[in-house]
Structure formats: structure tokens, C-alpha cells
Design a protein around this nucleic acid. Structure first.
Lengths: 335, 335
DNA sequence: TTGAAAGCGCTAACAA
DNA sequence: TTGTTAGCGCTTTCAA
């Protein structure tokens, strides 16, 4: 910048003003502005973002904390956040916390305190509100996605897990299924998982099948494949065997399919299957899998827009706000 | 930092020295060091990374430019880069360039000039070496992944596409297939795609089947589904119909499966199918799909380590270096 | 064993 | 319409 100023015989201030688009506002002559812009382009000048951030106290980076960026659900969200952020001149910093509360808190703290990001979008693994409450109180821009912490005065973007799950189970009931088991991750305190289980229960209750709520099986995070195999085996055997399974996410669905094949059960003849969370290969399976699709792109876009509004203070930080999108039942042939 | 110094009655210099681990090197009293560290912890002090970066000219961010972070291949790589980077105290900034050369160059230029990242790992969409040549000459830390630009004095991490493709096609030949078509993306200048086509050709030639190189069909980026359907239809019809198809990536494989189903061809009875690039659902298909698996995690890890070495100058930036990993044939039942 | 002072490159208040 | 000056929070050199 100094070089431009020197070559043009003007002050660095003027150059800064012009290049940050405040030329007219400060009434700088059109020709001067032209000259500055021309020389900047010739020299391939790009402002040092570090210096600018230090001076202004703002940074053009959006932080994203998710359990695992290699999970397709989160990488799709990341992509759409990136798109929305980049049209506003922001970049995306991605962190995987691996469902580890301590790691997540460490990331939250460091990213914020070190001024690495102007705000954070988080899919939290915890139920402890305290770390977040503090950030929110201090008006740090923060948006929750997918998993909510409803007690907080927070911004949230996610899907309607309860009604989505209900819709999925109603579809099974409408197809004449009488004993509908559920495979979930757990024991879980995560709002998304809890709400899906809740939706399943409500659908059962409304159909007068409340007595089958004992057909819930919770599989630990760490050991999905083996534990699912065991749960499926148990659910599909004996006199009280299920004739349908509803899974809380795509990983459980995949594990369940494998387990059903191993035990020689046919889908949908012996057991119907519906997954919450659709992925692009489910249509390719035999039979193609019926699933609740989540609008990952919309979640990312809405979350990014909300965060940018908070950063730019176009949104009062204090009013709690939820954007709840609908999941869509994609009927295929596994029911 | 000033606060810590004031409360302890020492200078900011001393605090900085202690907290950046140079306490012993400067011979600062153990007790003083202890006191500084203790108070810093109590105050939850985290250094302002922006100020530190401005002063030192270094930043603890690794830039990653890929065509699309929502593609599972790249999100898996991103995850492993993140892991390697974060153990060295670095964060990951992710940018999707969407196979758009102009966008990619803009990102490269801005990220570098604005000092946003200490180095860049890139899966490039272009063949123009000039933008890269300049960066490399100026010793900017740069590592290529997946797609190489072999004329350059560069660092590269990827898989052996040629020999991998050859292995896949040899597997088809060993199974008695006589007319092996290939579906590729194109017309493509990308090293990875080119090398896979080359491997296919070489395998054919070595088996005395060089006359079937006309069974290559190139599908444009933008329109994979429809163009693949057309290509598959053409390849599988008439007297010269193929009895096997080798696809250059997983998206083409998925499109090919759909196309084969639509035309009523059975896999593998009518047409055998092998995909380059395995994804986690291929084993679930009927039949489970034989594929060349790429070690995405290893690619990310090696690339991150190479980049960090460049950043820390433990590696002389001038010596070109390639890490070429082997793809692995996962034999399932589509052949 | 510790401190003073300078300066990274930019921007914002104030002055001219 | 433009320039001067100060300072963001840290690190590094040099001095004590």
C-alpha cells in the first residue's frame, strides 16, 4: 500500500480509503480514485488481511465446528455455508470435534479468543449450556445447526426431527406394519436424536400402538456396526419380532441393511426399513431405500445468512430465533 | 497480555517469552515462569493470533482448494489434513473452486497475498503452470494433491492412476471379458483422468486387445447423468456391444449402474463393471461393486506433512518431490 | 534475568 | 479534497 501511495504521491490513508470503497463517501476526486485503483490492479495489490483485522478487530472468517467434516451431511452443509459466506467476502475455517465435548469447548474458546473467526456455526456434541451462554451474553456471533440447545437464548437452524420421524413412521403404519422397531444412537442427549425418538413414539401412540415402545434399541457411538447387528438380530427373532425398522440416521440404516442380509431377512417382505437422513446411494440399493431427506444445503445457507447478519449487527443479537426446515419423505421401495 | 504483565509487575516481553515457550532459552527464573503461566491460565488468556501473525508474518492456517468439499473423496482428504494440521497447531481453511480455473486462480492469489494461509494444498482444475510456477519460485509453500502438473518443480501427493487403472482392467480381462469399454470425464487434461485412460489402454494393448480402444466414451462434467445414459446405451447395443465397463470415478459408476438397469442389462452377467474410486456404499449394492479404492486419508496426511515441512523449512523448497500411493483393488461381485 | 522500544500494515480520528 | 498521527497486540532486538 505504501508503494502505491509513494508512486502516486498521495498518502496511504487515501489509498486505503479508495480501495476499501470509501472514496466517494470521503469526496475523493474521481481521477485520483481511478489512478489508485489502476495502479493497485497493475501491481496485483491485495490488502494484508492480517493487518486490517488487527486494526479493525474484525476478521473475514467464519468458523464451522462439526463432529466430522468427512460425514456427507456435514460436508454438504459446509459447502453451502462456504458459498453463502464467500459471496460476502468471507472464508470458511472447518474444525472436526469428533463428538468430543472437551475438544469442542477448546475449539470454541480458542477460535473466539484468538480472534480467528468473526463468528461460529456449531453442531454441538454437548448439552452443557454454560460455555455457550457466556459467548452469547457477550454478543459473540454464534449459530447452532442440526442439534439445538433450546434453553438458550440462541440462533438455531435445523430440521423438524420430531414431525419428520412421525411422518416416516406413519408411512410404515399406513403400509400395514404392526411392530415397528427403532434403532437409535444412544444413550443420547442430542436434541436431534431425542426428537426423532419422540416422533417415533408419538406416531405409535396415535396409532394405538403405544405398547410397542419397548422396540427401541440404542446403539453406542463407538461401535455402530457390531451393536446394530446384535440389535437387529434381537428385534427380528422370536414371537415378538418386528415387521419394520426405523433408523435414526444413515449410518444406522447401512448397518441395519447389512445385519438384515446376514440374518437372511428380506426387505421389505420380512422387515420394512426407513432411514432418517437420505444419502445419494440409497436409491441405488435393492430395494431402493425409503428415507427422510434433510435439506443440508438450505441448512447451511440459512445458518450462514443468520451468522452474517449477527456479525454485521443487522440482527439484534439478543432475540432468540429458530429456523426449522422440513425433512422430506422420499418413498422408494423398502416399505 | 498487558494485564498479566501489569498484575505480575513484569514486562509484556517477559510474558510473551514465557508463553511462547522461550522462557528457558532466555533464562527466565522458574518461579517467574510458573507465575506467568498460572495467571494466564486463570485469566483464560489466549494470544491474539492476528497480532502475532502481523508481527511474525506467519499465520497458523493451512489453505485447501478443491473442486468441491461436498464430494466425499475431498471431504475425507480434508478431514485427514485437518487432523495432521491441528496436531501442529494449524487450522484448516477450505475453498471449493468448482472446477473453475478463474475462480481457482483468484483464490490462490488472494489467499497468498492477503496472508490468509501459511501454505496451500490444491487439487487443481487447470493445466496452466504459470500461476503456480510463480508461487513456487517465490518459495510459497504449495502441495498438489490428486491432480499433478508434472512439468513443474512441485510437491505432489496422489495415487498411481495409471497402474491402478491397469490393475482394474487386468482383473476384467482375467475374468474373460473381451470388449471392455471405458467411461471417462472429458475431454480432460487432468492428470488423474488422463492417467486412468492411459492405464486402461495399456492393459488392453498388453492383452492384445488394442483394437478396442475405440470403446472409450467421454462424458462432459456438467451433464454426467444424461450423457452417461446415452454412452452406456450406445456401448451396450448392437453387434460390437461391450461385455464390461470401467469407469473413471464413482459418479460415473453410479450413473452407469442406473443406465444399465434402465436398459435391462444385468451386472455382471451382461456387463461387468469396475469403478475407479471406491465409496462406502459400493459394498451394499446388488451386486456389490468391484472398485479401486483410493487412500484418501493417507493422501491428506502426507500432503499436510509435506506442506508443514515446507512451511517450517525443514524441507528445501526447491527439490521437486512426488508421493505416489497405490490404489487397492477391492474385488466384489460386479465382475 | 529482565525491560524498553520499535514496528509488522493497516485504518480511523482529527487536522489542514 | 487530502494528509498527519496514533495505535491495534504482539514479538524481537538491543540494552541493562
Amino acid at each position: 500500500m505504501a508503494e502505491i501511495a509513494r508512486k502516486l504521491g498521495v498518502s496511504p490513508t487515501l489509498v486505503s480509503l479508495v480501495l476499501s470503497g470509501k472514496g466517494n463517501q470521503f469526496g475523493i476526486k474521481k481521477e485520483t480514485q481511478e489512478a489508485v485503483r489502476k495502479l493497485a490492479a497493475e501491481l496485483n495489490y491485495v490488502p494484508n488481511s492480517v493487518a486490517s483485522s488487527l486494526r479493525t478487530g474484525r476478521t473475514k472468517i467464519v468458523g464451522l465446528i462439526v463432529p466430522d467434516i468427512s460425514n456427507p451431511f456435514f460436508s454438504r452443509i459446509a459447502r453451502s455455508i462456504e458459498d453463502a459466506a464467500s459471496s460476502a467476502g468471507y472464508y470458511l475455517m472447518v474444525c472436526s470435534a469428533d463428538e468430543d465435548t472437551a475438544r469442542e469447548n477448546q475449539l470454541l474458546h480458542i477460535i473466539r479468543q484468538s480472534q480467528r473467526a468473526a463468528g461460529i456455526i456449531v453442531c454441538t456434541a454437548q448439552t452443557d449450556m454454560q460455555p455457550f451462554a457466556e459467548m452469547i451474553e457477550q454478543n459473540y456471533p454464534l449459530v447452532f445447526i442440526d442439534r439445538d440447545l433450546p434453553g438458550l437464548n440462541r440462533q438455531f437452524v435445523g430440521v423438524n426431527n420430531r414431525s419428520g420421524a412421525q411422518k416416516a413412521v406413519e408411512h410404515l403404519i399406513a403400509a400395514g406394519r404392526k411392530r415397528i422397531g427403532m434403532l437409535s444412537i444412544g444413550p443420547s442427549h442430542l436434541s436431534s436424536v431425542r426428537d426423532r425418538v419422540q416422533g417415533w413414539k408419538e406416531a405409535l401412540a396415535q396409532a394405538g400402538m403405544a405398547d410397542t415402545v419397548n422396540l427401541l434399541r440404542e446403539v453406542p457411538f463407538g461401535d455402530v456396526e457390531k451393536a446394530t447387528a446384535a440389535a437387529v438380530k434381537e428385534l427380528t427373532q422370536g414371537p415378538g419380532a418386528v415387521d419394520a425398522i426405523f433408523t435414526a440416521n444413515n449410518r444406522l440404516a447401512i448397518a441395519a441393511i447389512n445385519a438384515l442380509r446376514e440374518t437372511g431377512k428380506s426387505i421389505p417382505d420380512d422387515v420394512a426399513l426407513v432411514s432418517f437422513d437420505d444419502i445419494d446411494v440409497f436409491p441405488l440399493l435393492q430395494p431402493p431405500l425409503t428415507a427422510m431427506a434433510q435439506p443440508a444445503e438450505a441448512i447451511g445457507r440459512e445458518a450462514a445468512e443468520l451468522l452474517l447478519a449477527l456479525i454485521n449487527k443487522t440482527k439484534a443479537p439478543s432475540d432468540a430465533h429458530s429456523i426449522v426446515l422440513d425433512a422430506e419423505l422420499r418413498i422408494r421401495r423398502s416399505v
